[in-house]
Computed example of a mutant assay.
Amino acid sequence: MTLFYKKIHLGHVYMQLWPRDKTLAAMFPENRIITAVEFAIRWLPVLIVMSLASQFLLGAATFWPVVMASVFFMLSLPLQGYYWLGQRAETRLPPSLSKWYVDINNKLGQQHLVRQPRYLELAETLNRAFRQLDKSFILD
């Protein structure tokens, strides 16, 4: 079970590291997943309370199992997003992105690079690049 929690935590860390730039949204699905997770964290508690209140006030007792199943499903949605992000953070970069990772690090003047970079290292590098370089590094 600790592996699951580590992956959820890594997904949260990865979500915080990933730069929110529109130019990256066309190349990576991370922006859409992060937006969905943030939306779920903000609005699902309201939806859960509303569905429980409406069931309590208006629903028949026979529908409680269905309502509880849907509540548990809604509670799991942000965790699914964090898990996906954690899994993505641990995934090794394909060769084309690995070369791009090396090129960006060379522009940043980094000497020691990870031999087999993951998406987590790419997120760190992109975050640094957006702070230190202009956006032309994306097109190179």
Rank of each mutant, 00 (worst) to 15 (best):
R118P: 09
V67R: 06
K99R: 14
I34L: 05
V67W: 04
F39E: 03
N106G: 10
K99S: 12
R115S: 08
Q55M: 04
M50I: 01
W100E: 10
W84M: 03
G81W: 02
Y101W: 01
A69G: 13
A40R: 06
A40G: 08
I41W: 02
A36Y: 00
I34A: 06
Y83E: 07
V114L: 10
S70W: 00
F56D: 03
Q111D: 15
E90Q: 07
T62Q: 14
E38L: 10
V66M: 08
D103R: 13
F73K: 12
E38K: 10
Q116Y: 10
F73P: 02
S54F: 06
G81P: 05
P45A: 05
Q80D: 09
R42N: 09
L57N: 06
N105F: 00
I48M: 06
R42F: 06
Y119F: 13
W84F: 01
W100H: 13
W43C: 11
S70E: 07
S51V: 07
H112K: 15
I48N: 11
G86L: 06
A36N: 02
Q110R: 10
P78S: 12
E38A: 12
M50C: 04
G81C: 05
Y119W: 09
L47V: 00
Y83W: 05
S70A: 13
S96L: 13
V46S: 01
L47S: 01
A69Q: 12
P78M: 15
A69K: 15
Q111Y: 11
R115V: 12
L44D: 04
Q80A: 07
S51L: 11
L77R: 04
L77P: 00
E90L: 04
R92T: 11
R118W: 06
M74N: 11
L97E: 10
R92L: 12
R88I: 05
N106K: 11
L58E: 03
S54N: 07
G81K: 05
S54L: 05
F72N: 08
R115K: 15
R118S: 15
V37E: 00
T62L: 12
R88H: 04
K107D: 15
Q110S: 14
L52G: 11
Q110G: 11
W43D: 13
E90G: 11
I33P: 00
I104V: 08
T62A: 13
S98P: 01
G109H: 07
A89W: 01
I33F: 04
V66C: 05
F56S: 05
V46C: 03
A61N: 06
D103Y: 07
A69R: 10
Q55P: 00
Q111T: 15
R118V: 07
N105P: 05
A36R: 08
K99L: 12
F63E: 14
S70Q: 10
F56M: 02
R42Q: 10
S51D: 05
F39C: 01
T35F: 05
I41P: 05
L44K: 00
Y83C: 12
S98A: 12
I104N: 04
L113R: 08
A53S: 09
N106P: 02
L57C: 00
R42A: 11
L93C: 04
